[in-house]
């Protein structure tokens, strides 16, 4: 797998656009999801995905293979997303969040409609909590808990030491917990009006 990735990268570095296309197809979904969780809008996330790969193509010759190609891409994605957040304040509107929620609902989940509604509301609350976090903590939570990167990979992406990462990740989790709590409380209060009652623990999803 890694050898295949290395060959693709070498071909792309030699100017083979098809090889770069294969790298794009392989890694761009992850880049898109990082961007989506960072900015909260599919449209903006798509813009970031394209920008990340434009920059990656431009800087392809500088990739020396010291880290994995995916790690290098995550680094570019984190930088582009953080730049975008700094450039566009406020990051996301309530309308965008509702649109996001509707899109997810339309993606088609099977099961109890009530559970679907609960899940969608919970997702909305979680995404809102993420967006309420400082961006430099948000990227940590996204890389660790959504992308599932290891400590070592995150340290490589962000260019920091493991010791520094321990502290930063601890603070990022604290930040997320504090951002989520009031949203879950609000969700439980609003669910109290629903026929099936509010007593469901959203954290169980």
């Amino acid at each position: 797998m890694e050898q295949d990735e290395k060959r693709l990268v070498e071909r792309a570095q030699a100017g083979d656009l098809d090889a770069f296309g294969e790298l794009y197809e392989r890694f761009s979904p992850a880049v898109f999801n990082v961007a989506l969780r960072m900015v909260g809008s599919r449209e903006d996330a798509e813009d970031i995905r394209q920008e990340v790969f434009l920059r990656a193509h431009r800087a392809l010759k500088e990739f020396k293979g010291e880290a994995r190609f995916s790690t290098w891409l995550y680094r570019i994605a984190a930088n582009v997303a953080l730049d975008e957040i700094r450039r566009r304040k406020p990051t996301v509107s309530a309308d965008a969040l509702r649109e996001e929620s509707r899109w997810e609902a339309a993606a088609g989940e099977r099961g109890d409609p009530q559970e679907q509604l609960d899940r969608n509301l919970a997702r909305e609350a979680v995404q809102a909590a993420l967006l309420a976090m400082p961006p430099h903590y948000r990227i940590l939570v996204v890389l660790k808990h959504i992308e599932g990167l290891s400590y070592e990979e995150i340290a490589s992406v962000l260019g920091c030491s493991l010791t520094s990462l321990n502290v930063r990740l601890h603070r990022a989790r604290e930040s997320f917990r504090k951002a989520l709590a009031p949203r879950l409380d609000g969700l439980e209060e609003s669910e109290s009006d629903l026929p099936r009652g509010p007593k469901k623990n959203l954290a169980l999803y």
Binding site: R37, R119, A122, R123, Q127, V141, H145, I146, R173, A181
Partner: peptide, 8 residues
């Protein structure tokens, strides 16, 4: 709280 992130 971290578990809820799996919803995304």
């Amino acid at each position: 709280a971290l578990e809820t992130l799996k919803l995304l």
